[in-house]
Simulated scan of single mutants.
Amino acid sequence: MSKKLSSQANEITDLLIEANSDPIGIGRTVESKKPSFYKGLNWEEAYQNVEIIPSIEVNIKNTGNLF
């Protein structure tokens, strides 16, 4: 289950980068933490080279029926 969810998350992040969409605010974080670095950066171009590697871990604590 962890591998499947990680794979799906990876597909989603690839689509977001391709669409130049930054919904988790990576650019905003870079801008606030490293403003001088961000000023000299073409964020739209740089974002296309961002590598996001999702890693999802699943721990099932209980099983049963959901109603």
Rank of each mutant, 00 (worst) to 15 (best):
M1R: 01
M1E: 04
K3F: 06
S7T: 05
N10L: 08
I12V: 14
L16K: 13
I17M: 10
I17D: 11
I17W: 09
I17S: 07
E18I: 07
E18S: 13
E18Q: 15
A19C: 10
N20W: 05
N20F: 03
N20H: 10
S21A: 15
D22M: 07
P23C: 11
I24C: 12
I24Y: 10
I26T: 12
I26W: 13
G27N: 11
G27L: 03
R28C: 05
R28L: 06
V30L: 12
V30C: 06
E31V: 01
S32T: 04
K33G: 01
K34Y: 13
P35A: 00
P35N: 03
S36G: 01
F37G: 04
F37V: 01
Y38F: 08
Y38D: 03
Y38L: 09
K39R: 11
G40M: 00
N42E: 07
N42Q: 04
E44V: 03
E44Q: 15
E44C: 05
E45C: 01
A46S: 07
Y47A: 06
N49V: 02
N49L: 06
I52H: 13
I53Y: 12
P54T: 07
S55P: 10
I56T: 09
E57I: 01
E57T: 14
V58P: 01
K61V: 06
T63Q: 03
G64C: 02
